[in-house]
Design a protein around this nucleic acid. Sequence first.
DNA 1: TGCTATT
Length: 726
Amino acid sequence: MVEGQTVVQQQQLQSASGTGSGTAAAGGATTGGVANNQAQQNGGASSAATAVAAAAAAAAAPAAIVNNTAANNNNNNSNNNNNNNNTAATNNNNNNNNNNNNNNNNNEPDPKTNLIVNYLPQTMSQDEIRSLFVSFGEVESCKLIRDKVTGQSLGYGFVNYVKQEDAEKAINALNGLRLQNKTIKVSIARPSSESIKGANLYVSGLPKNMTQSDLESLFSPFGKIITSRILCDNITGLSKGVGFIRFDQRFEADRAIKELNGTTPKNSTEPITVKFANNPSSNKNSMQPLAAYIAPQNTRGGRAFPANAAAGAAAAAAAAAIHPNAGRYSSVISRYSPLASDLITNGMIQGNTITSSGWCIFVYNLAPETEENVLWQLFGPFGAVQSVKVIRDLQSNKCKGFGFVTMTNYEEAVLAIQSLNGYTLGNRVLQLAAVVNANAAAAALAANSLVLNHNNNNYNNHNHNNNHGNNGNTIAAYDQFGKHANHNSNHNRQHNSNTSNTCNTSKQKQHTTTSCSSSSSSNNRHTQPLLAAATKATATATTSGLSATANNRQSKLTTKGNSCSNNNNTATTFTSNGISSGNNSYHNNSNNNTSSHEGGATASSSSSILKTSTKFIYNKPQNHFELLQQQLQLQQEFAQFLTNVANSATGGGGAAASQNHNNNSSSNAASGSNVARNAAGNTHSALSSTTAAAAGNKNNNNNSSNNNNNNYQSSFMPSHWSNWFF
DNA sequence: TGCTATT
């Protein structure tokens, strides 16, 4: 009955990474995304678009995710309820109930799908809330309640799901989740009505030994208690003798006042005072003008990252002042980073604190099923988290293996890094976390024109009983900055197949690598770490002629000695500006499957990144000159850092990494076009999907092709990274 | 008189 807050830490970490696939599979986007992949691959002959065009198409029409779901929908539609066997009396009762409900439901959302989220962190935006909750199902609406005047978050909001079951999942998963300095409460929202407002009571004069349970027992005779709390001293933890009781209905609170105010509880010598609680916003310290001014802008725009980081920082600073725990690690770590935007702007250091736009932490080696809430929970205990972002593949909606967490306070970010580096999340060891000031990153990128886009595509193809198994894989191509690198790795699993082959010809401007391999049984991606720096998973390839699969994060080819044949795959990679760009054209005839072949170079460890991350930590500058020096240094180091990341993504290591990009894909037009195109050529439009669906049907009728494309794409610095980052 | 609880 009483919904007291829970401080039990949710056990999501393992489930999110271990069994998260089930959750993800339940999501329409994921399922649809896979279907869409196939569709696009099967789709024949639309003209090949450029990578830029494809990216633009994806941005413009990202929602082509509903292929092949019609049949399911039909099935669902057929599930009509026919439970009209009520007796007349029962019907009367139902009618009465409905009337009662209607009194409260003035076009409100279905109460079972509509959640109220309380105790949200001050800086959390509506988009961030949505991103957290959408992990559990389609969200019909999401609303963060803000002060009408100042725009400041009131710390609660509503999330209305499409499906009741998703709402239940969200409650189970998120209620009690610790975010920053708050423990959120997620519960079904009561239907809004005037009768539930103003039902909060302030109680003082309570005996110091009275527990929350005692308090509830005292008040429960007068109505349904929604929340109760006894305030305790922050330091001693002892009761202050005051508390709150929120009733469901105002009249219940009224009744409690009449009955209990001035009475003396059992085992007490002092009468208690019971009265309506103040509006918490009425006696709050006035917020800082800057935050008050800027905060409303947080409601605009679609960025998950704080669009106005300064506002977030200001608000967070205010929150930190109110909640000292937010800065509880400050005294432990005295190191300092030179790049704080306000500092740059103002050219001064204010006291001992640097107001910052937040500190961005890269998090690597996340499982494909990773959801935002995992990152929230992972980093929340270390301090104020402004935002989290799981970078996802546009098509599959799966995590690409990395994400970002922005924390308000530098010290807390550093502590999180130090604590979480090497942390095992699910079956993966988090490999890297680097703290970078968002503006520093922007500057570094701009100054160095760095590679932003690296597509690392892992393809897991499962062909069963196919002699002619073909797998179409898309290669997402980002080209926002005119430079990108594709790193593709195909994992092909073929069973009962004697004739499938893996053949590639990769032409690059810098070099040509030709490799040929028999079909392979590769590691399942669920057991293969992406960035296995710790384990340094050196890929193996035993087939003669196959270039070393030089990617320490993905391919592990175990060949079975089949001879190579049917070398009909041609992968052409164009390079520009010394950085590869993927532009792939594939022509497959029969019996072709591709597997990944990173050209030439052998795997190298990415552990150096661990060192790199720590290099972003600086001593506090003593003067402005030092500050500028450190800023410059950080930019340069961050540039190097990104390069290292890119290199580790290729697995090539060193200079070769920037050049070796084999782009492998394969066509699967079993009886149709033999021309497979890369993702750039596959638009994301519904039209394309439709075409593809038709092709898919064709494949279905053809025993020679059975695609189970678990396309998993991992990439670093995709185009939308910058959208989030700045 | 609070981890700002009803759009």
